[in-house]
Every structure is written in C-alpha cells, then in structure tokens.
C-alpha cells in the first residue's frame, strides 16, 4: 500500500497513493496509519486527493483511525474527490471530520 507521511506546515501530512480505499485494503490501511501516527504531531492531515473510490469499509477505517488518536490530536481530511465526498455526505460523516474544501467543490459545499 502506498502511504507516505511528511511534516508540513506544522502538521503531519499523510498521503494515500491508492486509487481505492475499499474492503480489500481497509485493514491494512488502519494498521499502517497506526504506525505512521506514532510520530508526534497534534495535527494530522490525511490527503485523499489520489483516491477516487471509497466504500463503507474504507470509511469505517478512516473513522477508526480518528478514534485511535489520543485526545488533543486532530485528523483533518484534504483533497476529497467527488465520489469520496459523496460517501462522507450520505453517511453524514462530513459533520464529524474537519474537511478542507476541495478545488472542485468551490462554494457549492452546502448545495447538496
């Protein structure tokens, strides 16, 4: 699984280099994220701009990663593609995460 992390702008930015975050890799994703998050950083940004498909297993894995963060650490999401954004919206998990607006969404985030 392609998962890279680097410190940037005071945050740990984790980039998932997989086109799909789905049932086939959800468990592996959780395990790798746990290892990466051993690096101390109060802010964690998960960059999903390379992901064009997310299913409920992938969503559950992201929720699990957030729940595993120690108190005081935050998980922010960045670069949600339309299909991925839709899954967050339909399940109302968009209200749980800090989601940085994507270029394609422009000012239409509340339109749906």
């Amino acid at each position: 699984m392609k998962l890279s992390a680097e410190a940037s702008e005071g945050a740990l930015v984790v980039r998932l280099g997989e086109a799909r975050l789905d049932a086939a890799i959800a468990i592996q994703f959780k395990d790798r994220m746990r290892e990466i998050l051993l690096q101390p950083s109060p802010r964690v940004v998960l960059d999903l701009s390379g992901v064009d498909f997310l299913d409920s297993s992938g969503l559950g894995a992201i929720v699990s990663v957030m729940k595993g963060l120690s108190p005081g650490r935050k998980l922010e999401l960045r670069g949600l593609t339309p299909n991925v954004e839709k899954v967050f919206r339909l399940t109302r998990m968009d209200s749980v995460f800090a989601i940085q607006p994507s270029a394609h969404q422009g000012g239409l985030r509340d339109a749906g």
């Binding site: 409920s56 297993s57 559950g60 929720v63 699990s64 729940k67 339909l90 399940t91 749980v96």
Partner: peptide
C-alpha cells in the same frame, strides 16, 4: 462514533 453500519444504509 460508528465504524460500521454504513453499508446497508
């Protein structure tokens, strides 16, 4: 927070 139960929904 729920980690499952989204699929059938």
């Amino acid at each position: 927070l729920p980690e499952g139960g989204f699929g059938w929904y």
